[in-house]
Design a protein around this nucleic acid. Structure first.
Ligand SMILES: [Mn+2]
Ligand SMILES: [Mn+2]
Ligand SMILES: [Mn+2]
Ligand SMILES: [Mn+2]
Lengths: 217, 217
DNA sequence: CTATAAGTTTAGACAAATCTAAAAAAATAT
DNA sequence: ATATTTTTTTAGATTTGTCTAAACTTATAG
């Protein structure tokens, strides 16, 4: 069983490794975990001793099979708790991440299975991210960034790739929430900002925002 | 804000001080918290520095007003989570304590207020213990031990004063659960064991068990 | 009232996770 | 190819919470 801290490292390494084959770098981990590179090196050694990561000096780290399983489990817990907070306790989607950061470390496997059942086995968390099942299986459908669409394209909002509170609150305010249908009406030449129609309203989002909205056509 | 460990000490000191005016003793704390007396002394000093306990060497500790508030808050969280686990996730009353020991340390006050609301502001936990309200107010009705009743006395089971899994499972098995009405039919001379009728059945419980069942007449 | 026992504290050490500063390796630029 | 910059690691210190062994205080028994 891993400590609270070890779990945080595993999860960060997992996220850093998601869309790449290359190893996670010390500095990248340090930045995400809000610590110093020296501390990361220490922890990496410890995780390597426990066979949770493969580590070669100066070459970064990769999760082993067993490390990856542990990480996916943490992700599962995090996302199930987020669903609970939004669906049952009526938190908004921008308020749940920090609380889930704590709840994800509660160890009882029985608790998570029952929570999953209580929530009716949700497939996605409030941000559209897939929830691994109890065997660690994970839907890895990849959605298209809104910023890749062309004028006239239609689609459904399926997720976001940025989870900060300001960003999520902004989306909420302009009505860009999960499940909504959108159609691109224009892409501004000058700044690449996207004009789109959603529920009979016309709104404009910056290219920066559009990059972090995930669409299913 | 207190650490996980500090919170555990505060809670134990609170429980040890409940039915007494005298200070909590080092060894008693050590035993409850599964540590050594020397460690307790160290932690007590730290809590005293933080004005959470009053401490005079060799004289034990008492919670200050602020320490007591913190402790009651932890008790509130513990008991609300226990209700959640039993009412919403269908855990049995003997299965929830250890999980609640972890959940009680999740810090968000907003989370607890919403959980309280979600559970419809329960007054008691699954073991009959009162849940402090958000201002720390706590129903301190004292119930009578089943072992104090005389032949012919009737009453309702309101709580237990022993929370071990074996004990709770035993009560479950013989049908002595919260809210049930009982009537004492005989008290055995030989061993003081109690014969009682409950839902038209006759059962016998040892004096030791009877001491830990709390009754409202 | 003194001797012994029980309970508590101190001193010094240790493990986990962190940090700063300096050294070493790798990447990049000229 | 060499110099410079960036990244990573090491060395040594620090903090939190723990431990053992020894010293000290308080309680108890004769
Ligand atoms: Mn999150
Ligand atoms: Mn999420
Ligand atoms: Mn409990
Ligand atoms: Mn309880």
């Amino acid at each position: 069983m891993q400590s609270f801290t070890e779990e945080n490292y595993l999860k960060i390494i997992y996220h850093l490794s998601l869309n790449t084959e290359s190893a996670a770098q010390t500095n990248a981990i340090a930045e995400r975990i809000q610590t110093k590179a020296a501390s990361v090196t220490d922890m990496i050694k410890k995780l390597a001793d426990k066979k949770l990561v493969d580590y070669k000096k100066y070459q970064g780290v990769k999760l082993t099979e067993s490390g990856k399983n542990a990480a996916i489990n943490i992700v599962r817990r995090h996302r199930l708790w987020e669903v609970f907070l939004v669906e049952k306790l009526n938190f908004k989607w921008d308020e749940v991440h920090d609380i889930a950061e704590e709840l994800e470390h509660i160890k009882s496997p029985e608790l998570i299975e029952r929570l999953d059942e209580f929530l009716a086995f949700p497939k996605n968390d409030p941000h559209g991210d897939p929830i691994p099942d109890k065997n660690g299986k994970l839907d890895n459908t990849v959605f298209i960034k809104l910023s890749k669409l062309k004028t006239g394209d239609k689609g459904l909002i399926m997720g976001v790739s940025e989870h900060s509170s300001v960003f999520l609150q902004h989306l909420e305010k302009v009505g860009l929430t999960l499940g909504k249908q959108i159609r691109i009406t224009e892409i501004t030449d000058f700044d690449g900002s996207v004009e789109l129609s959603i529920e009979n309203k016309q709104i404009n989002v910056s290219r920066e925002v559009a990059k972090h909205i995930l669409i299913k056509i």
